[in-house]
Amino acid sequence: MKRFITNSFYFIALAGLALSFNACVSGNQKQQKSVEENIVGTAGPNDEMMEEFAKSKLIFYSLPSPLETAMLIKRSGASFNEELLNPLENIDKYTTNKKMALNLGVYSADLSYTSLFDQTQSSIKYMANAKRLADGLGILDAIDESTIHQLEENMNNRDVILDIISETFMSSNAYLTENNRPALAAMVLVGGWVEGLYLATKLSNGSLENNKKLIDRIIYQKLSLITVINLLEEYKEEEDVASVLAQMNQLQVIFEQVKIVNTSKVEVETDAENKTTTLKADSETHISKDVFEKLLNKVDEIRTEFIS
């Protein structure tokens, strides 16, 4: 199976070449592709096509982005705490590609968090730091001076600010993945994911009772962690990735003690008027105080290593 990974999207060199040639041979006769020949003339999906799909599919692993994580935190009713952010002055410590990538993710998460809570002055400063790290990684055009100016000009328009953040995050990610640096792109995403988890755990104030919605958000990161690990596994031959993967595996040992149990059947309902589908199901979660403490400590330890 060809496995193409992205948090976004990753071309390994040979497969990339293969795809490019595909792109360039659009005039080729279908007879030249023996496997596809079997399904010529079939409109729409059928069993044979799906079988072929299973053999040749590319795989994307999609993590919750910094923006989505910040939205989850805000929707849980948590508050803003500036003291939790990675201090701006830490940026001078980040001189290796690994640290720059991880902290581009970290600062992107902080940027999203400040923006969701309308801390625009902080957002501008964190965007400037994200720009410095993107520049350091050689990412061209993702964040430029005009991006900062756009933020300044739209200080009171959260929608525009969020749009600018999502655009810059996508551009950085696309640049790295499509310039044969997918491992660094993965590290940016993992840095952002860890920072989001750090913010959520700190905002819980160590209590399982204060904000149950926030605790649920933390517990369900158990599912995202599987995606994180699958993503990093693809690049584990690289030393920098291997060390981050080891940290994620340590985190998984703790998350394995967290229980998520499905308690109802899945029902699918579509609202005919607004054409929105609801996937109805229930589940219950359980985490002991002891495991929660271990989780908080491990997240804190990993994040401290990332930002130091």
């Binding site: 595909n22 792109a23 659009s26 999609s62 655009e167």
Partner: peptide
């Protein structure tokens, strides 16, 4: 709001 993730490929 776009979540900021990028997934795209050239497919046949």
């Amino acid at each position: 709001v776009h979540d900021g993730n990028y997934h795209a490929a050239t497919l046949s």
